[in-house]
Amino acid sequence: MTVFILDDDEAVRDSIKELVESVGLAGEAFGSANEFLAAYDPGRAGCLVLDVRMARTSGLALQAKLNEMKAPIQIVFITAHADIPTVVEAMRNGAVGFVTKPYREQELLDNINEALSRDAAVRSVATRDDSYLRMLDALTEREREVMQLAVQGLPSKVIAQRLGISHRTVELHRSRLLEKLGVGSMVELIRLAAERRA
């Protein structure tokens, strides 16, 4: 995981980079929003430590741009000028934390660790969702129909009547779709489907 540091003050960038590297994290520093955006890869795990006030593009403007891009990066703001409306706007738009300069090292590290944890959680859910969608793609059209009715809690006899097929054929489809989706029972399948809809 990488801690991306964006501040137009070189001394601040260097000190934060040194701090994160001192605890074994990778750090990459940028002097402007454009420089960061040119290098940004949504596939890379990490978080962004972002200065609120910068010369060309403010931290809040960059946050808005990243949200517009549906970028998954978690942001910790850092600023010497923390006014309440700015903090409220940043937090409402998804910021993990707000640290004032001169920052306390442990406070900044705590916020960074929280952001990295959130990033890992978001990526884990995305990976599970991708995996689930790939498994759904492996189902036949009939297996999907059986699944849609089964997750509503309908018994095989009712599913057979609804689809105009035999009870035995429904049972066969149910066992195949459980196997393809990697679950051991209909209860697990119902739970899996509910989680993915949530």
Rank of each mutant, 00 (worst) to 15 (best):
V3C: 09
F4S: 07
I5N: 05
D8Y: 00
D9M: 09
D9K: 09
D9W: 00
E10T: 06
V12A: 09
K17N: 07
V20N: 09
V20L: 08
V23R: 14
G27V: 05
E28L: 11
A29K: 06
A29H: 02
A29C: 07
E35F: 00
F36L: 01
A38L: 06
A39W: 01
Y40F: 13
D41I: 06
D41T: 02
G43L: 10
V52E: 14
V52S: 11
M54S: 01
M54R: 00
A55R: 02
R56L: 02
L60V: 05
L62T: 04
A64M: 10
A64Q: 12
K65P: 00
N67P: 02
E68A: 15
I73Y: 04
I73T: 06
I75N: 03
I75C: 02
V76P: 01
D83H: 08
I84A: 15
P85C: 07
V88Q: 14
E89D: 12
A90I: 03
N93F: 06
G94V: 04
G94S: 05
A95D: 02
F98P: 01
V99D: 03
P102D: 07
E105V: 01
L109H: 04
S117E: 15
D119T: 02
S124H: 12
R128W: 11
D130G: 13
R134V: 03
D137L: 11
D137E: 15
R144Q: 14
V146R: 11
V146P: 05
G153M: 05
P155A: 13
S156A: 15
I159Q: 11
A160M: 11
R162F: 10
S166Y: 03
H167Q: 14
R168A: 15
T169S: 15
T169V: 10
T169G: 08
G182K: 15
V183K: 10
L189M: 14
A194Y: 05
R197L: 10
A198R: 14
